[in-house]
C-alpha cells in the first residue's frame, strides 16, 4: 500500500542545507481511520514510519528497504481531524552504503514522533 497521494498528500516542501521539511496533510476520510480505531481515528504508528520512508524515497529518488529502526519514539498520537496537517523534517546522511535518516514529525510546538532509521537502497 502506497500512502502518498492517498493516505497523505504533500502540501509543500523546503530544502535547506542539511534537511528537507515537508508539510503534509492526512486524509481523514481514508479507510484506515475507520479501522484504527472505530470511532477514534488515530494515525497508526507504522503509517508514520511508512510516511517517512516514502518521503525519503521521493527525496533520494530511489526505492528503499527499512533495514533497521535504531529508535522510534511516539510522544503524542496524531488525530487526523485535530492535526490534519503536520510537518515532517528529514535529515539524511549516507554511511557504509546505507541511508541514515533522522526524522521529526511535529506541528507548531508539538512533537508527535522522532525517528532514527537506517535504509538500504533497493532500486
Amino acid at each position: 500500500m502506497k500512502l502518498k497521494d492517498d493516505f497523505f498528500k504533500v502540501l509543500a516542501s523546503r530544502t535547506s542545507q542539511d534537511k528537507t521539511e515537508y508539510s503534509i496533510r492526512f486524509n481523514s476520510g481514508h479507510f484506515i481511520y475507520q479501522e484504527h480505531f472505530p470511532g477514534n481515528p488515530v494515525t497508526p504508528g507504522v503509517c508514520l514510519i511508512q510516511t517517512v520512508k516514502e518521503l525519503c524515497e521521493e527525496n533520494l529518488k530511489c526505492a528503499l528497504f527499512l533495514h533497521k529502526i535504531a529508535r522510534v519514539r511516539y510522544f503524542k498520537a496524531v488525530n487526523p481531524v485535530e492535526n490534519e496537517t503536520v510537518d515532517v523534517s528529514l535529515n539524511i546522511s549516507e554511511k557504509d552504503g546505507l541511508h541514515n535518516v533522522q526524522a521529526v514529525i511535529s506541528s507548531d510546538e508539538t512533537v508527535f514522533s522522532q525517528l532514527s532509521l537506517l535504509f538500504a537502497r533497493t532500486g
Partner: peptide, 16 residues
C-alpha cells in the same frame, strides 16, 4: 483497551 506503540528500538528487518 487501546494500545499505542510508545517506542521501537533496535528493530532489525532482514527481509520482507
Amino acid at each position: 483497551k487501546i494500545g499505542y506503540i510508545g517506542e521501537i528500538k533496535n528493530l532489525v528487518i532482514e527481509r520482507c
